[in-house]
Design a protein around this nucleic acid. Structure first.
Lengths: 155, 155
DNA sequence: TATAAAATTAACGTTTACGTAAAGGTTATA
DNA sequence: TATAACCTTTACGTAAACGTTAATTTTATA
C-alpha cells in the first residue's frame, strides 16, 4: 500500500493512461489528489503528473470502497489516514524493532479498525437480507414460468 | 410489499410519526413521493397525508437499499417498478389462476432479477475483499500490541 | 522545427438529494 | 373559540462530486 519514491525501471504513467488503468476520469484523479486521497505524484520537467503502479493500486482500492461500501470521499480520507498511520507504525517497527510503540496509539488504531469491521458487517447483513428477498422473487417467477409451460402442454 | 386501500382499523400515521418510524425526515418522505418511490398516501379532509404500515415498510426497504447497496434514487425507481410489476402479476394470477401469463414478460422479469443478483453478488465480493484486508490490518495491530506488552514484561 | 496531441491551472456549470424558510391552512385542546 | 402545534405547497439554498470550457504549456513526432 505504501507509495515509495520512484525507482529506476518502475513503470510510470501520464494521467491519461492512469485514467485508463484505474477506470476513473482525469478530472476525478486530479480531484482526489486535491483532496489528499492520493499523494501528489512526481512531475516531469514541464509539470506533467507521473503516476506509478502504487498510485493505480490505491485509486482502485479507493473506488472499491466508494462503490462497494458507499463511502463518501470524506470517509475515504479518514480511512486513508488510518492506513497511512499503520504504515508509519510498521516503518517505525522495521527501523527499530525494540523501540517503544505507544500502547494508546495501538489501542486507538485497533478500536478504529474494529469500528470499520462493525460497519462492514452491518452492511453485509443488510445486503444479504436484500439478496434473499430478490432471490425469493426470482423463485416465484420461475414457479410461474413452470406453471405456464404446464398449462400450455395441457392444451 | 403491496400497498392496499386502507381498511377500517388499520393504523395510520401523519407525516411526523411516519418520519419517526421510518427514520427519514419529513422532507425526504415528501420527496420520495414526488419521485414515485412511494404511492401517494390518502389524505385527510384538510389535505394531511395519512400513511399506513405498508408505507413505513416500503420506506425502510428503500433506505436499506440506498444505504447498503448505494443505489441512487433513480436506481431505486427501477427496482420499485420491477417489484410492482411482479406484484401485479401475482394479483393477476390470484384473480384467474388459469389465465395466460405472458411468457416473454416472465422472461424479462427473470432476467432483470438475475441482473440484480449479479450486481448484489459483485458488491458482496468486493465488500468481503475489503473486509479481509481490514481484518488483516487488525491482526497486525494485535501482534504489535502483544510484542509491546512482552518487551514491557522483560524489563 | 513545426505542429498535432496531450497536459496544466482556473473557474464556472451541473446533478443529486435533500435542507430551509415563508406564507398560509388544519387540527387538537384548553 | 382561540391558540398552539402541526400540516401544506412553493421556492430558493446547499454540499458533494465531479463535468466542461478556456487559455496556455509541454511533449511527441512527421
Amino acid at each position: 500500500m505504501r507509495i515509495n519514491k520512484r525507482k529506476e525501471g518502475d513503470r510510470i504513467y501520464k494521467i491519461d493512461e492512469a485514467a485508463q488503468l484505474s477506470g476513473l476520469t482525469k478530472r476525478t484523479i486530479r480531484y482526489y489528489e486535491e483532496l489528499g486521497l492520493i499523494p501528489p505524484p512526481e512531475r516531469s520537467e514541464g509539470g506533467f503528473r507521473l503516476y506509478t503502479d502504487a498510485h493505480i493500486v490505491r485509486l482502485k482500492a479507493l473506488t472499491d470502497m466508494r462503490d462497494a461500501l458507499g463511502f463518501s470521499l470524506g470517509e475515504l480520507q479518514e480511512y486513508i489516514v488510518l492506513v497511512d498511520e499503520i504504515d508509519a507504525l510498521r516503518q517505525q517497527y522495521r527501523a527499530e524493532p525494540d523501540g517503544p510503540l505507544k500502547l494508546d496509539t495501538l489501542d486507538r488504531l485497533e478500536r478504529k479498525l474494529e469500528d470499520q469491521l462493525i460497519v462492514i458487517d452491518e452492511k453485509l447483513a443488510k445486503i444479504n437480507r436484500i439478496r434473499s428477498e430478490v432471490k425469493q422473487l426470482n423463485e416465484r417467477i420461475k414457479q410461474f414460468k413452470q406453471q405456464e409451460s404446464q398449462t400450455e402442454n395441457q392444451e
